[in-house]
């Protein structure tokens, strides 16, 4: 039985699953990274994802283009980010708890809108698998990497893009400064609150696209609470990646890999109790981090509100 797991086609299958599964985590965790690098913890990612998932789905359900759906999700995500920013930057509220408030609000509102506007679980035709010419013909690797829907590619494009924005642009410099030492950044004329508003809006947009990647990309339906807490895992993965985009990529891939592996192990009837299999992704994430974690410097001002002239 076990040798079945190590055939080329199975390994390709596992990695293919892994790459796809990581999509929503990548979007959401990269978005959260922006916020945390500027010093704001947003635990409300799951709520934003649900709102994004719903609005993207609703737009497509109403007959609009898929990309319009994505744009609608982005707009909603920005609005949710603004709400979070207002509450935790302007009103300087406890960031973790306001995140939970945002989560409940998004969870409730998306379900409510779904019940009012759609009323029953329906399917739409979402993003189709889009094999990239030539590249997808590479044996093995082609299928693993280049045979997915457009939002999957977009998620991976966001990794270098986020890295570039955070590490190589003025905005990124400001983000890091604000997250590390808001007082000093303020002295240098950086608007601390302005930067935090910006990162939360970026984070909101990415979280909403993460939701859209489920409702019009990977599943093509909307159901109440369809994220099932995925947003919280995404926040955890930011810590796994210790606030670095590459680390976040690694965390998302690891978590997804173990998940893909456990699904394959079960499907191939390899005698591992499914009760154990379904716990593996969570256990492995903790174990791997426990072995690799060093005392990595977190953004010094993480979760601290900033008020001028104090």
């Amino acid at each position: 039985m076990l040798d079945e797991l190590f055939t080329i086609s199975t390994l390709v299958g596992i990695l293919h699953s892994c790459v796809r599964l990581a999509t929503p985590y990548l979007f959401a965790a990269l978005g959260e990274t922006f916020g945390q690098r500027s010093g704001v913890l947003n635990l409300g990612v799951d709520g934003i994802m649900l709102m994004g998932a719903f609005f993207a789905f609703y737009a497509v359900f109403e007959g609009h283009n898929l990309w319009v759906g994505v744009l609608v999700a982005i707009a909603i995500g920005v609005l949710m980010g603004l709400l979070k920013a207002f509450v935790s930057v302007t009103m300087q509220s406890l960031q973790g708890i306001s995140g939970i408030g945002l989560y409940l609000f998004g969870l409730g509102l998306s379900s409510l809108l779904f019940k009012t506007l759609i009323g029953s679980v329906e399917g739409v035709s979402g993003f189709r698998q889009l094999a990239i010419p030539l590249l997808s013909d590479i044996p093995g690797l082609g299928h693993i990497l280049f045979n997915h829907n457009a939002l999957v590619y977009l998620a991976y494009l966001m990794v270098p893009l986020s890295w570039f924005v955070i590490n190589r642009t003025t905005l990124g410099l400001k983000i890091r400064a604000v997250g590390h030492n808001p007082e000093a950044a303020d002295t240098l004329g950086v608007s601390v609150n302005g930067v935090r508003y910006a990162t939360l809006m970026i984070g909101g947009a990415l979280a909403a696209v993460a939701g859209a990647s489920l409702s019009i990309g990977l599943q093509n339906v909307f159901q109440e609470n369809m994220t099932n807490g995925l947003g919280f895992i995404a926040v955890a993965l930011v810590y796994f990646g210790s606030w670095r985009t590459v680390g976040v990529l690694g965390g998302s891939l690891l978590f997804s890999l173990v998940n893909a592996l456990q699904l394959w192990v079960q499907a191939l009837d390899i005698p591992v109790p499914s009760e154990v299999a379904v716990m593996m992704p969570y256990i492995m994430t903790i174990v791997v981090l426990a072995f690799t974690a060093r005392q990595i410097q977190k953004p010094a001002a993480l979760a601290r509100s900033y008020e001028r002239g104090e």
Partner: peptide
Amino acid sequence: YTGSFSDTT
């Protein structure tokens, strides 16, 4: 098995 009743992903 997914280990959950509502894990659509």
